[in-house]
């Protein structure tokens, strides 16, 4: 009985997303014949989600722990700025590009470490920590770029990260795919992944099982900032410039994707496949809105409605299954 329930629910949740995507695709194919359902358009959808798709792969760790990371957009901008500035200041050589990228990633790791320590050891709510740090890191990005655009055209290796193509497909899409696979493996095949679900599901019980939950949290915040930094570097390469506002608001897309993907904000429940589907859904919706010529002012409204609807549905299903819902209909006795 119980097994059946969870199975049906799981199936519904999973196929829900597929149906929605499928329905949108069909509608759009009909509405925009020969424009929407083309390889080129799908490449462009994937390209458009590739940046925050990478971010999703790390930020999902913090959400699964019942935390959050609001700083990813700012971290991406600052890391991109660190990287590009170093490369430009050091003669745009191949070796400076390598060091620049490493510095950018290192910056991300450092920010994540600080987040993790403050959240785990001092017990400050992640929402507050990362909200404050969003401002700080954005400020750092402004300082580094001196509030100007830093252009970068060389070296080729660096530009390839975000602007190159492999077998006709933008390289950044590969980066997103690789990040997804690594995130999948960590979450599903490693002890650390098990610990994330355990700590996210019940921290006290995890502690009493010998899990160092603080360590698990710190690593998650590092992962989140690391993927943000990586995304920021790819973005800088794609745009051929570093600018403090580069990834402003990306944290919204990242969180939208994760929540749409069925990851519980309470922690302990969800998976990376879902989150990437969520990212794809956001991408398709944005793409469709553009193709249909709907003014960009409306895009935020539509995305906002979609996220509220998804979260409300999730909360409702949970509540209904909890036995706490008051209903006029008498529930059938179990057993």
């Amino acid at each position: 009985m119980m097994k059946k329930n969870t199975d049906i629910r799981g199936l519904l949740m999973r196929s829900q997303k597929l149906w929605i995507i499928l329905a949108i695709i069909i509608v759009l194919t009909v509405l925009q014949p020969g424009v929407f359902l083309t390889g080129a358009n799908f490449k462009s959808i994937l390209l458009s989600i590739s940046i925050y798709g990478v971010m999703v792969c790390g930020t999902i760790f913090t959400i699964l722990l019942g935390g959050i990371d609001l700083s990813v957009g700012a971290v991406a901008a600052a890391s991109g700025a660190v990287c590009v500035k170093y490369i430009v200041n050091n003669g745009n050589t191949g070796s400076s590009a390598l060091i620049g990228v490493l510095l950018g990633l290192g910056f991300g790791i450092l920010v994540g470490l600080l987040h993790g320590i403050i959240v785990a050891r001092f017990g400050v709510p992640a929402f507050l920590v990362t909200l404050a740090s969003q401002n700080i890191v954005y400020g750092i990005a402004q300082l580094i770029t001196n509030n100007k655009v830093i252009s970068i055209m060389e070296p080729e290796g660096f530009i390839f990260l975000g602007g190159g193509r492999l077998l006709g497909v933008p390289f950044s899409i590969y980066i997103m795919l690789i990040a997804t696979i690594i995130s999948y493996i960590i979450l599903n095949r490693t002890v650390y992944g098990r610990h994330i679900f355990a700590v996210g599901g019940n921290t006290q019980a995890s502690d009493l099982s010998g899990i160092h939950s603080n360590r698990v949290k710190i690593i998650a915040y590092i992962a989140s900032s690391f993927t943000a930094a990586l995304a920021g570097i790819v973005l800088a390469s794609m745009n051929r410039q570093a600018i403090a506002k580069a990834a402003q608001g990306y944290e919204n897309d990242v969180l939208t994707a994760i929540v749409l993907g069925g990851v519980s904000l309470m922690g302990g429940e969800g998976n990376i496949q879902g989150a990437i589907w969520g990212a794809l859904l956001v991408g398709i919706i944005s793409n469709a809105l553009r193709l249909m010529g709907i003014p960009s002012s409306y895009h935020g409204v539509v995305k906002g409605i979609v996220i509220i609807a998804a979260v409300a549905l999730d909360a409702y299903v949970r509540y209904r299954n909890s036995g706490l819902k008051r209903s006029r209909v008498r529930s059938k006795a179990v057993n």
């Binding site: 098990r194 355990a198 599901g201 019940n202 019980a205 995890s206 302990g268 429940e269």
Partner: peptide, 24 residues
């Protein structure tokens, strides 16, 4: 532990994963 629900197990995780927690 005394407080089973809050300290004993991870409600959302499967039996096998709960049992495995102390055995990795």
């Amino acid at each position: 532990p005394e407080d089973r629900r809050n300290q004993g197990f991870i409600p959302l995780l499967a039996i096998e994963k709960n049992v495995a927690l102390t055995n990795y």
